[in-house]
Nucleic acid binder design. Structure first.
Length: 503
DNA sequence: CGCTTTTGACCCGCGC
DNA sequence: GCGCGGGTCAAAAGCG
C-alpha cells in the first residue's frame, strides 16, 4: 500500500508499561517518527569488561552458563568464586592463602557460596510452586470443562439446546477428535507462555485441513462418538465457542476499525439484502490463528461499519487486541453457558446493557436466532455511548482522533467484563475470571488496583473514565505497538462517530 | 521477491 | 434433487 496515504497512528488505549528500562537513553525516535524502545542489552557489562580487557573470563563463564536457558538458569558458582577474588583466584587455587587476609577472603567466599546455594534452592522451590500452580490451574480448567459438558448434556436431553441449532451443536461437540488436536496443543503452548489465558483455549477446528463442520466426524472418526476425553471436551467447547460472534456497529468512514490485530483479507462477497460488499478477514498475527472477522457497511446508513468477530486468538496479543479477544471469548462462553436463555431465541438486551453501561441502554443485543449466536454492540444508537455518570455538560472530545476506534476498543473490554459477570452466575467462569481480572488490571494498570471490577461499580466507571482519559491524553504516542498492523487498519479515520465524554 | 488484495470458482448447508 | 446464499479457496494481479 501507499505509505504516503497512511493516516497518522490511531489513538488506542494507553497501557502504561514500565519495564524499568524506559530511560531517556533507550527511547529513540526512528526514521519514521515512531518512538521505539531500545532493546535492553543484558550483556553490556560483558562488553564493557571485554573492552577493558580485564576480567573477561569471569563474566564470560558466568554468562555463557546462564544464558543457555532462562528456565535452566544455573550460575556456575564455583568458577565465579574462583575468579571473583579480584585477581586473587590464583592464590586460592594454588594454595597461596596463608595470610589472615586470605583466610578471611576464603571465609567470605564460603559465605557467598552458601548464600548462592540457598538462593538456588529457593529458586528451585519457586519453580516447583509455579509448576504446582500451573497444574492446579489446568486441573480447574478441566473441571470447568467437564461441568460445561454435563450442562450441555442436560440441555440436550430437553430435546433442544439453547442455541437453537442442536444438530450443529451436536456436530460440533462430536468434533472432538478433529486432526486439529495437535495444532490445539501447539496453540495452547503458545498461549501458555503468557500464563493462564483464554487465548489458547480457542484452538482452530479448521487446522485439520478443512472448513469447520463440513465433514461429519462420524464418518471421519467413527470411534470418537462413544467416548470423550477431557481434552476432547476442551476442543469441542472451543469449536463451539468459535461459532459465537461479537458484532460491533460503529460509525466509521474507513474500511475497518482499529482493533489492535493484524488482518488479511481473504474474500469478499455481496451478501443478500445489502449492496455493500462484505469483506472477510483472518488474523495474521500468528500462523493458524482461527480468528476471523467480517466487515460490512450498513445498507441503511453507509457510514456505519459492522464488524463481526469470530473465534479467539491462539497467540499473545497486544493490549488493545486483548480487549477484543477477551470480548469474543467472554461472549462465546456466556452464550455457551446458557445463562441467558430465551424462549424465542432473542435475548433482551436490557440486562446486558445495564450491566455493560449503567447509563446506556439498548446498545447491546444478544441474538441466538441467527445461524450463529451473536452479540451485537451498537455504538451508533446513542449519541453518548460512553456517557459517564457525572452531572455536567456533555462535550465532544476536543481532539481529532477517531473516537469510534476508542469506543470499539473499549467496549469489547467492557462487554467482556459484563459478559463475564453474567457468566459468573452459571459458575462456569472460574478460570476466565482470572483472565478477566488480569486483563482488567492490565487494562486499568495504575489507574486502579481493583481485583474484581464490576460494571455497576462506581470504581469500574471511574476506571473506565481513567482509561478513556488515558487514551485521550496519550494515545498518539502509544500506538506503535498496535498499528504496525499493516495497512488494513489504516485510513479508517472515524470522524463521523459519536463518542462523547461528559466532564 | 514476498506479501497482500482481488475475484471467480468451489463447497456446503439449508429451504423448498 | 435443486437452487440459493454464505463462506472459503486459490490463482492472478498489484504493490512496495
Amino acid at each position: 500500500m501507499d505509505s504516503s496515504t497512511r493516516s497518522p497512528p490511531h489513538p488506542t488505549i494507553q497501557f502504561p508499561l514500565n519495564l524499568g528500562c524506559a530511560t531517556a537513553e533507550n527511547i529513540n525516535v526512528n526514521d519514521k517518527g515512531k518512538v521505539v524502545m531500545d532493546e535492553m542489552d543484558f550483556f553490556s557489562a560483558k562488553k564493557e569488561r571485554g573492552r577493558d580487557g580485564g576480567t573477561e573470563s569471569t563474566s564470560r563463564d558466568l554468562y555463557t552458563t546462564g544464558t543457555s536457558s532462562i528456565s535452566d538458569f544455573n550460575v556456575n558458582t564455583e568458577l565465579l568464586l574462583l575468579n571473583s577474588a579480584n585477581g586473587g583466584g590464583d592464590q586460592l587455587i594454588h594454595g597461596g592463602a596463608s595470610s589472615n587476609s586470605d583466610r578471611k577472603l576464603n571465609s567470605e567466599v564460603g559465605v557467598l557460596k552458601t548464600e548462592l546455594e540457598r538462593m538456588n534452592s529457593e529458586n528451585q522451590r519457586l519453580k516447583e510452586m509455579l509448576t504446582q500452580a500451573t497444574n492446579n490451574y489446568n486441573g480447574l480448567q478441566m473441571h470447568i470443562q467437564t461441568i460445561m459438558q454435563e450442562q450441555q448434556k442436560g440441555v440436550g436431553e430437553e430435546g433442544k439446546n439453547f442455541l437453537g441449532n442442536g444438530v450443529s451443536m451436536h456436530r460440533q461437540f462430536v468434533d472432538l477428535g478433529m486432526p486439529g488436536a495437535a495444532a490445539s496443543a501447539n496453540a495452547n503452548d503458545v498461549s501458555s507462555s503468557e500464563g493462564p489465558s483464554d487465548d489458547g483455549l480457542m484452538a482452530s477446528n479448521e487446522a485439520g485441513g478443512g472448513r469447520e463442520g463440513n465433514q461429519s466426524p462420524q464418518t471421519k472418526f467413527p470411534s470418537l462418538n462413544s467416548h470423550c476425553t477431557d481434552n476432547g471436551v476442551d476442543q469441542a467447547t472451543e469449536a463451539t465457542i468459535r461459532k459465537a460472534r461479537v458484532s460491533v456497529r460503529a460509525r466509521c468512514e474507513g474500511p475497518m476499525i482499529t482493533d489492535g490485530c493484524q488482518w488479511r483479507k481473504y474474500g469478499q462477497k455481496i451478501a443478500k439484502g445489502n449492496p455493500c460488499p462484505r469483506a472477510y478477514y483472518r488474523c495474521t498475527m500468528a500462523a493458524g490463528c482461527p480468528v476471523r472477522k467480517q466487515v460490512q457497511r450498513c445498507a441503511e446508513d453507509r457510514s456505519i461499519l459492522i464488524t463481526t468477530y469470530e473465534g479467539n486468538h491462539n497467540h499473545p496479543l497486544p493490549p488493545t487486541a486483548m480487549a477484543m479477544a477477551s470480548t469474543t471469548s467472554s461472549a462465546a462462553r456466556m452464550l455457551l453457558s446458557g445463562s441467558m436463555p430465551s424462549a424465542d431465541g432473542l435475548i433482551n438486551s436490557s440486562v446486558l446493557a445495564r450491566t455493560l453501561l449503567p447509563c446506556s441502554t439498548n446498545m447491546a443485543t444478544i441474538s441466538t436466532s441467527a445461524p450463529f449466536p451473536t452479540v451485537t454492540l451498537d455504538l451508533t444508537q446513542s449519541p453518548n455511548p460512553l456517557q459517564l455518570p457525572r452531572p455536567s455538560n456533555q462535550i465532544p472530545i476536543p481532539f481529532p482522533p477517531p473516537p469510534a476506534t476508542a469506543a470499539a476498543a473499549l467496549l469489547p473490554q467492557l462487554l467482556g467484563q459484563a459478559l463475564n459477570n453474567q457468566s459468573k452466575f452459571s459458575g462456569l467462569q472460574m478460570s476466565h475470571e482470572m483472565d478477566q481480572n488480569r486483563l482488567q488490571n492490565q487494562f486499568n494498570n495504575d489507574t486502579t488496583s481493583s481485583n474484581s471490577l464490576q460494571p455497576n461499580d462506581p470504581s469500574f466507571v471511574a476506571a473506565l473514565a481513567a482509561a478513556i482519559t488515558s487514551f485521550i491524553g496519550g494515545s498518539y504516542s502509544n500506538n506503535n505497538n498496535n498499528n504496525n498492523n499493516n495497512n488494513n487498519n489504516n485510513g479508517n479515520d472515524l470522524n463521523g462517530s459519536s463518542f462523547y465524554v461528559n466532564r
